[in-house]
């Protein structure tokens, strides 16, 4: 289930005044079962990058392999790829169109050519996975609250039973509670089904809390790629490109500078709290 990009370049509107080099020589591999975060500024190429993963956008040059098969090869089953790599766009609720939630979620499986019963079974399963209340299955998707709409839209992609789930800013425009809800649900999905998840975000805090690996995009280039702690240890470089490490990273570095012998690798508030308590309990004894 791995997705491998080799030297992918993408140029928008080539040869016009609006020409833009959106991706520059990007190579990376996403392994099965990974929970990957892609971060970067607006216009850093992260949305363009993920649209390559299921073949919606064709690279200007370079190659993409899904399970070792070149997706640009003649006769490659693009439709098959799209049901394997489920892509949830930013503001996915803008794509809802059916009369009720259940039939909207059925749209994906229906396009896969499944029977009506099977579609509905998968739709119910997907809605359950995202924690959508059953009593609202037959409501119009346009009458739901923002958070519920988004759940329904994510379920619409999940109902296709993808092996890889790609989410583009799934929390944009939600309040903090809705944001945590959706992200917790995504983590639950990842843990329950072993699905590969790619989460695009510009919030370091969100990403730090959930993912195991971070890819940092900057001006169309892959800037950093590694485990969360490793990437945040480059917090000075991140700052230079206008991104910031989670606030706790700064707190920990400051504490260390001022003489408290803490490890600076903590990336979430909980980890930081535990680390500070550990050091305080053991007095001034330094580990180094």
């Amino acid at each position: 289930m791995s997705i491998k990009l080799e030297h992918v370049n993408y140029i928008y509107s080539a040869g016009t005044a609006y020409e833009k080099h959106a991706l520059k020589d990007v190579s990376l591999e996403i392994l099965p079962g990974q929970f990957v975060g892609i971060i970067g500024h607006t216009g850093s190429g992260k949305s363009t990058l993920i649209q390559h993963l299921n073949g919606l956008v064709k690279a200007s040059s370079g190659a993409i392999y899904y399970n070792g098969e070149n997706i640009y090869a003649d006769g490659y089953d693009m439709k098959g790829l799209r049901s394997q790599v489920g892509l949830v766009f930013q503001y996915p609720e803008h794509q809802l169109f059916e009369e009720d939630v259940l039939s909207d979620v059925c749209f994906g499986p229906k396009n896969q050519g499944l029977s009506k019963e099977e579609c509905e079974k998968r739709a119910r399963e997907a809605l359950e996975l995202v924690g959508f209340p059953e009593k609202q299955y037959h409501q119009s998707p346009f009458e739901l609250s923002g958070g519920q709409k988004r759940r329904a839209a994510i379920a619409g992609v999940l109902a296709m039973r993808p092996k890889v789930l790609v989410l583009d800013e799934p929390t944009a425009g939600l309040d903090p509670a809705g944001r945590d809800d959706i992200l917790d649900q995504v983590r639950y999905l990842h843990d329950q089904t072993g699905m590969t998840v790619v989460l695009v975000s510009h919030s370091m805090e969100d990403v730090a809390r959930y993912v195991e690996r971070i890819i940092v995009m900057n001006r169309g280039e892959k800037m950093l790629d590694g485990a969360v702690r490793e990437v945040f240890s480059h917090y000075k470089e991140l700052e230079q490109v206008g991104l910031a490490a989670p606030q706790v990273t700064y707190v920990m570095h400051d504490l260390q500078e001022r003489g408290l012998p803490v490890e600076t690798a903590a990336t979430t508030v909980e980890e930081a709290a535990a680390e500070i308590l550990r050091v305080l309990r053991h007095g001034k004894r330094s580990d180094t």
């Binding site: 649209q51 299921n54 919606l56 439709k79 799209r82 049901s83 489920g86 892509l87 766009f89 996915p92 803008h94 794509q95 809802l96 169109f97 749209f107 994906g108 396009n111 896969q112 619409g156 992609v157 296709m160």
Partner: peptide, 30 residues
């Protein structure tokens, strides 16, 4: 919206006139 529906397996290009018109619904409504 087209991309989002294509990602959900919508087929906008093949089929006869009626099928293609029907395929526009998931795009026109949103």
């Amino acid at each position: 919206i087209m991309k989002a529906q294509i990602a959900r397996g919508a087929d906008l290009e093949s089929g006869n006139m009626i099928q293609r018109t029907k395929a526009m619904v998931p795009i026109l409504v949103p």
